[in-house]
Amino acid sequence: MNGKELKHHDCRNFIPVDVAKGICNVHKQMVLIDTPVCEKFRTLPKCKNCAHFTSDPNQDTMGTCEAEKTKPWTFADLITVTCENYSAK
């Protein structure tokens, strides 16, 4: 993942207000999700950042969770702060 792909809703400091914007908890101001992130960026746990995530070769926003026996499908942007199996890449 390079810096250009990162969005504010990939950041642990971001408080999501709605689908377009949220509050940066570092700078204490409203930011649009789809604008460049800053140097204070901290990775938010999401499936795409998890060691157990295998991306679907045909659709990279979708994938599989390898942590469970049943290998359920999942999606890259699923937030996993509450997932007991999350393991940062």
Binding site: H9, D18, V19, A20, I33, D34, Q59, T61, M62, F75, A76, D77, L78
Partner: peptide, 20 residues
């Protein structure tokens, strides 16, 4: 608009979540 998709006439959803 942008990366937001309107569904059911009222709600926005991030386009990243639409395939799911």
């Amino acid at each position: 608009f942008g990366s937001v998709v309107s569904i059911a006439g009222k709600f926005g959803i991030r386009e990243e979540e639409v395939p799911a």
